[in-house]
């Protein structure tokens, strides 16, 4: 992590903000378009499918952005699947068995996520568990959560998955269940924007410099007066809680969760890889990673159908290896590097 450069610095000038404002406007206005228009020759809701994909992209982008908060400082966690799982299953179980509205269930689940992040994070940072060791300790955490979900299958449904009990006619603010996709679109959009805002705040904070110093040399930064354990713990808990929230959003949107979709080592790795593919050091890198991975999976599914199960992840796996070897800064990081080099002449 030696060459952390501010590729999204001021070189782009004001045009960046203009482009951002236009994209934001398009995203906000999109659902208000006339759904009945016979765009593709049919009178059906032509926006339903694109919006579904966009909601998924935004939810996963939030998870990926949260991971990159700590991942960019060399804190490679393979335990974020656990945080997603705790958030999603916590809220859903409280709703089904305790009758608690997600308005109360979400804070409780997120508090639980923060507590788990603290319990695992504190000793890790206190006793200087870094690098491979940190990755593998957090991997064990992922596996614990998955095995607990499997072991308590009488309540969680195990590998068969879990569905939150529907409430009323499917549109309820109390249960946070919306059969109408538009509502969730805005919820996901706001959450995604909020995640980016957090990233931006961290990027411009003193903590960022402290964490960068720590990732370069822990002893030297401790000697320079940085409270290493505290800095690492802060970013880990923030990252874990945001990931847990993404898990909850996913659960409320899909109304179905299973260990394969929100917990375990496979999801943890998926999070890491999407970020690496998109670009770990830039703000929109994780979002680009989510767009690439979800569009790749969806377009292959549409083009080839389900007859060739596994083709998308096969290509995805090869791409990841190639990315790490040839483009370790990811797609967006690589593009921004190239642009700034070209500008510099």
């Amino acid at each position: 992590m030696t060459s952390v450069t501010l590729v999204n610095g001021s070189k782009w000038g004001e045009r960046r903000y203009l482009a951002g404002a236009i994209v934001a406007l398009v995203l906000i206005v999109l659902p208000t378009l006339n759904r009945e228009l016979p765009v593709f020759g049919t009178g059906a809701d032509w926006l339903a499918y694109p919006m579904h994909i966009m909601v998924l992209i935004m939810i996963w982008s939030l998870a990926y952005t949260s991971w990159s908060l700590m991942g960019r400082f060399g804190l490679v966690s393979l335990g974020h699947g656990a945080f997603m799982g705790i958030g999603a299953y916590g809220t859903a179980l409280l709703w089904n068995y305790a009758g608690l509205t997600p308005w109360i269930g979400i804070p409780i689940s997120l508090a639980l996520v923060a507590a788990v992040a603290f319990i695992v994070g504190y000793p890790c940072f206190r006793f200087r568990i870094v690098g491979h060791y940190f990755a593998l300790v957090t991997l064990a955490l992922s596996e614990i959560v998955r095995q607990v979900i499997m072991a308590t299958r009488d309540y969680t449904g195990g590998s068969l998955g879990f569905t939150p009990t529907p409430y009323g006619d499917g549109f309820s603010l109390y249960a946070l269940q919306f059969s109408d996709r538009t509502v969730f679109y805005y919820v996901a959009l706001a959450s995604w924007a909020f995640g980016l805002w957090i990233w931006w705040r961290v990027d411009r904070s003193m903590d960022r410099f402290a964490l960068e110093a720590i990732s370069e040399d822990e002893d030297a930064s401790a000697a320079a007066g940085i409270w290493v354990t505290r800095e690492k713990l802060k970013i880990t808990i923030l990252s874990a809680v945001m990931t847990g929230f993404a898990g909850i959003l996913y659960m409320q949107y899909q109304q179905f969760i299973s260990p394969d979709t929100v917990s375990g080592i496979a999801i943890s790795l998926q999070i890491v890889f999407a970020v690496v593919a998109g670009g770990i050091y830039v703000m929109f890198g994780p979002t680009v990673g989510a767009i690439i991975t979800i569009l790749l999976a969806e377009s292959l599914r549409v083009a080839i159908g389900v007859s060739m199960v596994g083709l998308d992840t096969t290509i995805y796996g090869i791409l990841l290896v190639l990315f790490i070897i040839f483009l370790p800064k990811g797609v967006l990081g690589g593009i921004l590097d190239w642009l700034s080099r070209r500008k510099a002449g």
Partner: peptide
């Protein structure tokens, strides 16, 4: 950690290649 991630990409590849 990059080497760990590269072999992680291989994990996805081998797993889904076997599925395929």
């Amino acid at each position: 950690i990059n080497q760990l991630l590269a072999t992680g990409g291989l994990l996805f590849f081998l797993q889904s290649f076997a599925t395929l």
